[in-house]
Design a protein around this nucleic acid. Structure first.
Lengths: 218, 218
DNA sequence: GCCAGTTTTCGCCTATCGGTCGAAAACAGG
DNA sequence: CCTGTTTTCGACCGATAGGCGAAAACTGGC
């Protein structure tokens, strides 16, 4: 479960109390029930940590099935990427907290590799889908959005360009309202939202498009 | 397992002999061994159908885990996308043959949904990675490559543009040789290959790039 | 040989997109 | 009212994608 908080991309981990890998940090998860699919299961598991309604996006990442990934037992994991909007601060159990993804504590099993996969998937999808909606609050300023993208991607992006690219793709729309300026003054920032409809990931933006068929609109 | 053959994207299916879903068409696969991971397993399963050395690319697609997906038993499947270059015609068992993905026969279980996922994944990755290498022979003409992309994407692409886009990304390089013209004559076509190195999927080509830092090369 | 028909290649044109910069707008505080 | 701050927006430029048609290079028939 990833979230941009305090300006950096962070992952929710809990500290194991028992062996194996006691005291190491672990991703939330657990066994699959007989009557549920893996997505239902991961939501049930996450519900023990947070309010699942706060999850803005959940998608499968990959299956991790190395026979030696868990010592002494055969455990096959379906890893998920979960995202939480940056305006939410879920209440978490005492053994659980957030860690910046680029300075992880000692992790249990192959959970560090899973985190790496999650980061890469998120960064890639920010570029060619509308996945940004899952990191952002319902309304936000362009500079706030810029911070979110920078944190998730790991490098600075231009606010001007970000706004133009997302707008041109039809993903961004102004709410009409403005945010009050900070303590140092400054022009009030306009608030935007991701175009509503369903908050789901759209098709990727393809290059090598089909032939144009010259849309001769009225 | 997908391949472009006879100008269309086709999937390898085998016809089930026994219940459940007798006579329906099924994707190759099977149970996971105790000492193998899912990728090793799928390669082992595929080896019963074809020569696995002919597989140019294998990647995880998704986990299908609906409790009712297989009647009477709990079966969780990790679906894979496998690709075979178009110049290869694997010898397959008698119960096995290729079917165009847009006119599938009655399929077993949820295998039609799995095929749909595979098509979408392939089409998306052709746009923003170098995955084309896995569909193409070691050397090919631009128009042959155009056919491959058109078949896999489901729409025509321009040969001129395809060559330019792939070349600009540094994915394509001329072999120097040319292919003989067809029976109707025509200029001999130059042969190209995907730039060698490892035949692996590269990072996606991201939009929203990091700031330029003015690469002041030597 | 020469010509018609075919297929590929390549240069050119245009529209759009991505990246950058700087001026102008809008605010707070002194 | 002036200064400092932050946002917004227009303008510019290079890179990229899409499209077109002329030229190149071949085959086969006359």
């Amino acid at each position: 479960m990833l979230q941009v908080r305090a300006g950096s991309l962070q992952v929710m981990l809990w500290q194991r109390g028992k062996e194996p890998h006691a005291h190491r940090w672990s991703l939330p998860g657990g066994g699959l029930g007989d009557e549920e699919d893996v997505e239902t299961s991961i939501r049930r598991q996450l519900a023990e940590k947070v309010d699942v309604r706060q999850l803005s996006h959940v998608e499968q990442l990959a299956v991790f099935s190395n026979p030696a990934r868990v010592p002494g037992a055969r455990v096959i994991a379906t890893a998920f990427l979960g995202l939480v909007p940056s305006d939410i601060d879920p209440v978490v159990p005492s053994d659980t907290c957030w860690h910046p993804v680029d300075s992880l504590p000692p992790t249990a099993f192959d959970h560090e590799a899973i985190c790496a996969r999650a980061r890469n998937r998120l960064a890639a999808k920010l570029s060619y889908t509308n996945l940004g909606f899952a990191l952002a609050p319902p309304a936000f300023t362009i500079s706030a959005l810029r911070s979110l993208y920078s944190a998730a991607l790991g490098y600075k992006v231009s606010a001007t360009n970000l706004q133009r690219v997302l707008s041109r793709r039809g993903l961004l729309e102004p709410t009409g309202a403005t945010a009050p300026p900070g303590p140092a003054g400054g022009r009030p920032a306009a608030l935007f939202r991701f175009v509503s409809g369903e908050m789901r990931v759209t098709d990727p933006f393809a290059v090598l498009r089909p032939p144009s068929t010259r849309s001769l609109g009225p």
